[in-house]
């Protein structure tokens, strides 16, 4: 998870690195730790360390993880030659390593040689059938080829084996959402909330999917989860809007037999107030747009 403080730190270091102010290694470590996808930066500055013999040997054993990080970043930037060179260095250092074998298969993938990559992954899996990363790479390969249904099949098989992998649940949920299979996505997000109950963004995504599904019961649950997003994660403009939209949609559905309790009325007026306050603070020119939107929602 990337918190506010960590994001500020990354942006500060990125600025510093871009302007040649040093701190390249710290930046690369932070990117690795937070699992950010800044491949162009990692490639450019990682290579600058690796090409400098003095800086490279100062890293000690960390040097090899940097080679790996730069290789993946190079593949992501389509500079396959640089990736190939990095992998060659690793191969010379660790002959017969499976981790390097994985990188080689990824290089095949980056070049678009799908069947060769598939063969490489299957031979890696034969040696170690419980290599989670290789399983995930197969899913990603199916996705890269545009074969989403195969990706879903692979992911479901994978999740039968490794149920505690929340990243895989998130990937499955995102694939389902992209295919508009919201009922299945709801299930995945429920699993995610169960495994990481303190992450407000899962609550938010769950509420979003429920709101999209519609229906009185789903809308009420969505409203609760929008509220829990705010409760657990501080301010979230999206969740505030979600509460307003849910309340308005529920109001339209239960027209005539209006027996809403006092709490939900209080919740909607509170969230509208919070939105107005936030807009006044951060975007004063958009306050009129906001108030007309809220009026159209009859809040």
């Amino acid at each position: 998870m990337v918190t506010r403080r960590e994001e500020e730190e990354v942006n500060r270091l990125e600025n510093q690195v871009e302007n040649g102010g040093g701190g390249v290694w710290e930046y690369l470590c932070l990117v690795h730790k937070l699992k950010l996808r800044r491949s162009d930066m990692v490639l450019k500055h990682g290579l600058s360390i690796l090409n400098d013999k003095k800086k490279r040997s100062a890293l000690g054993p960390e040097e090899w993880t940097l080679y790996e990080q730069v290789a993946v970043a190079a593949m992501d930037c389509q500079s396959n030659d640089a990736a190939k060179d990095c992998i060659k260095v690793l191969q010379r250092k660790f002959p017969g390593s499976k981790r390097v074998g994985r990188l080689e298969a990824m290089l095949l993938e980056a070049r678009g040689l799908w069947s060769e990559a598939e063969n490489a992954y299957s031979s890696l899996l034969e040696e170690n059938p419980f290599d989670q990363v290789v399983h995930k790479r197969r899913v990603a390969m199916a996705k890269a080829q545009g074969n989403t249904s195969a990706a879903i099949d692979w992911l479901n098989k994978y999740l039968d084996l490794f149920m505690a992998d929340h990243e895989a649940w998130r990937e499955l949920a995102e694939i389902y959402v992209s295919l508009q299979m919201y009922k299945q996505a709801v299930f995945c997000y429920e699993e995610l909330i169960l495994s990481q109950p303190t992450v407000p963004l899962h609550h938010l995504a769950y509420a979003d999917v429920l709101y999209t599904l519609g229906g009185l019961e789903n809308l009420q649950t969505a409203k609760k989860y929008y509220a829990s997003t705010i409760d657990s994660g501080g301010k979230s403009t999206r969740a505030l809007f979600g509460i307003c939209l849910c309340t308005s949609a529920i109001g339209q559905l239960t027209k005539g037999r209006n027996k809403e309790d006092k709490d939900s009325l209080e919740l909607q007026s509170l969230s509208a107030m919070a939105l107005e306050k936030d807009y006044k603070q951060r975007a004063p020119s958009k306050v009129s747009v906001l108030s007309s939107t809220l009026r159209s929602l009859k809040i």
Binding site: R4, Q132, K136, A140, R170, E171, P200
Partner: peptide, 18 residues
């Protein structure tokens, strides 16, 4: 405020290259 989670990590295990 400073511990607010603002982004999930990129799902790098499922990264695709094309």
């Amino acid at each position: 405020e400073e511990n607010r989670v603002i982004a999930l990590p990129a799902n790098l295990d499922f990264m695709i290259f094309n």
